[in-house]
Amino acid sequence: MGQPVRDGAELTQDSRPGRRLTWQWFLVVVVVYAAVIQGLGALIGVDTSYSDSQFPTTESLVRNALIPIGASIVFAAAVVTWLGWWGEVLHYRAPVRRWVRWVPISMLTVALVGINYGHLADQSLSLVACLLVLGLFVGVGEELMFRGIGVHVFRRAGLTEGKVALYSSLVFGLVHVSNAFGEGAQALLQALIVSTSGYFFYLCLRVGGIILLPMLVHGLWDTSLISNLVGDKPQASVGMLLILLLQIALIVVLFVKRHKIEPVLPAHYEPVTGPNPSAAGSV
C-alpha cells in the first residue's frame, strides 16, 4: 500500500481503493463521453436550423439534449463503478478557507434570480418540465465526469490541489470545443468561459465536501442560462447580464485571493479521500 508523500498535500497513486486510471486514459474516457453526447445528438436529433431558438419545442429539447446527456450520465456512472471510486467521488476531503463559501452562495443566488421566469411562463408545461430535467442532467453528468472522475484522476497522480483544479478545469473547458460541430467558432470562446466555471464548481466541491453541491450549483446555473433559449422565440433577460457580471467578479476576486484559498494546516495533516486505503488493478 502506498503512503502519503512528505508534505501531506499530495498522495501517491497506490494509497486509495479501486482501480488506477492514468490521466492519458482519462482523456480517452472524456473523448468517449463527448462522442456519446455528440453521436446520439447527431443520430436522433431534430433539425432546429429553422429557428433562432436552441430548443424551440419539447421534442427538440428531449432528442437533442435530454437523451444524449442522459446516456452520458449512464456512461460516467459505469466508469466510476468499474473503477470502484464511488466512496471518494461522492465525498471530497480538502479543507478550504471560510470566505470561499461565497462562491456557491453567490452562484446559487444569481442562478435563481437570473432565471427568465417571464419567458418560461409563455412556454408549454412540458417544455419547462424538460428544461428543469435538463438542468439536473447537466449538473449530474458533467460534475460526475469532471469533478468526480477528473479531479480524482489528477489527485491520485500526486498533484497539488492547485494543479488538480487547473487541469480538471482545462479538460472541462476543452471538451466543450466539441460543440463546435453544431455551433461553430463561438464554441472556442465558450470553452474558455467554461474553464473558469469549472474552477468555480471545483471550489464548490471543496466547500461542500460532497459532489452534490457542485451538481446543484451547476444544474441551476445552466437552467438559468438555458431558460432564455427555449421556445419559438429566445429572449435574453437581465438574468444573463447578472450571470456574466458574477462570472467576471468571481474571476477577479479569485485571482486576487488565489493564495488565500488553502487553509493553514498543522504540519502532521494528511488528507484522506478513500475510506480504506487499498489498491486494485490499473489501466
Rank of each mutant, 00 (worst) to 15 (best):
R155V: 04
R155K: 09
R155W: 10
R155S: 08
R155G: 06
R155H: 11
R156D: 13
R156P: 02
R156I: 10
R156M: 13
A157M: 10
A157R: 13
A157Y: 15
A157K: 09
A157T: 07
G158N: 03
G158H: 09
G158V: 00
G158F: 14
G158D: 03
G158L: 06
G158K: 05
G158E: 03
L159F: 12
L159G: 03
L159Q: 10
L159D: 11
T160H: 15
T160C: 01
T160F: 13
T160S: 15
T160P: 14
T160Q: 15
E161I: 05
E161Y: 15
E161Q: 12
G162L: 06
K163G: 07
K163F: 09
K163N: 15
K163Y: 13
V164M: 13
V164E: 13
A165G: 14
A165F: 13
A165H: 11
L166R: 12
L166H: 06
L166S: 04
L166T: 11
L166W: 07
L166C: 02
Y167L: 15
Y167W: 14
Y167F: 12
Y167H: 13
Y167I: 09
Y167Q: 14
Y167C: 10
S168P: 09
S168L: 08
S168V: 06
S169P: 01
L170C: 07
L170K: 00
L170W: 06
L170P: 00
L170S: 00
L170G: 00
L170Y: 00
V171H: 06
V171L: 11
V171T: 12
F172Q: 09
F172R: 05
F172Y: 15
F172E: 07
G173Y: 06
G173A: 00
G173N: 04
G173T: 06
G173L: 01
G173S: 02
G173P: 00
L174Y: 10
L174G: 05
V175K: 10
V175H: 07
V175Y: 05
H176E: 12
H176K: 02
H176G: 01
H176T: 11
H176C: 07
H176S: 06
V177L: 09
V177W: 00
V177F: 04
V177S: 04
S178C: 09
S178D: 05
N179I: 06
N179D: 14
N179K: 02
N179G: 15
N179H: 12
N179A: 12
N179P: 11
N179R: 01
A180V: 13
A180D: 02
A180W: 01
A180K: 09
A180G: 13
F181L: 14
F181G: 15
F181E: 12
F181A: 14
F181V: 11
F181R: 07
G182E: 08
G182P: 00
G182Q: 10
E183G: 03
E183T: 05
E183D: 08
E183F: 01
E183Y: 06
E183P: 02
G184H: 01
G184S: 07
G184C: 02
G184P: 01
G184I: 08
A185R: 06
A185T: 12
A185C: 01
A185K: 05
A185E: 07
A185P: 06
A185D: 02
A185I: 14
A185F: 03
Q186A: 12
Q186E: 04
Q186R: 12
Q186F: 00
A187W: 00
A187L: 05
A187C: 08
A187Y: 00
A187T: 04
